[in-house]
Design a binder for these strands. Structure first.
Length: 170
DNA sequence: TGAGTGATTGACT
DNA sequence: GTCAATCACTCAT
């Protein structure tokens, strides 16, 4: 079994595809964060709840949850109790549709933004990411992978579990 | 039944 | 670069 941190790196460069009724959108994953067991910032840290139940499901399950009462984040479950948060995408297909959903704003450079741009909803929580309508296309990582601390957290901020391929500031 | 929390975004200076 | 809005979900009484 692969470690969650390895999976977080391998997801970079892969393509996330969502086939909705409105059309197909896809994007290259360019930023991820790992959430491990024993990590105080991980939702599974305090045990299983109704909200994080998918995190204890089989690998490659989608875990979608609401933060701040208004924003959704999209995670890929790697092991029971561990997951990788997809923080940013590089829009590939269906950009026009993304713009319709997002308005004339940044499309996929934030966790909640990419969820909205891709049209991902809580209906897909617990979804198997090897099946339609939401799935990940494996692609070799061609760009250099960089590592940094995670951001936006209130706990475990010093852990170097954030990976990205863009030359964006750490 | 109620109060606190939060893996963010968007607007403003 | 800084700051506040906002509400579903969780945990505690």
């Amino acid at each position: 079994m692969k470690a969650t941190l390895d999976t977080a790196r391998e997801l970079l460069g892969s393509m996330l595809v969502h086939e909705s009724e409105q059309g197909t959108t896809s994007g290259i994953i360019v930023e991820t964060e790992a959430y491990l067991q024993g990590d105080p910032a991980c939702h599974a840290y305090n045990g299983k709840t109704a909200r994080n139940a998918p995190m204890f499901g089989p690998p490659f399950t989608a875990y979608i949850y609401l933060v701040y009462g208004m924003h959704y984040c999209f995670n890929v479950v790697t092991h029971p109790g561990e997951a990788v948060l997809v923080r940013a995408l590089e829009p590939c297909d269906g950009i026009a549709l993304m713009e319709t959903r997002r308005g004339r704003r940044a499309l996929c450079d934030g966790p909640a933004k990419l969820v909205q741009a891709m049209g991902i909803t809580v209906d897909l929580n617990g979804h198997d990411l090897r099946r339609e309508p939401l799935y990940i296309v494996d692609r070799p990582v061609t760009r250099k992978i960089l590592t940094s601390r995670r951001v936006g957290l209130t706990r475990g901020v010093d852990l170097p579990y954030r990976f990205y391929t863009l030359d964006r500031p750490a």
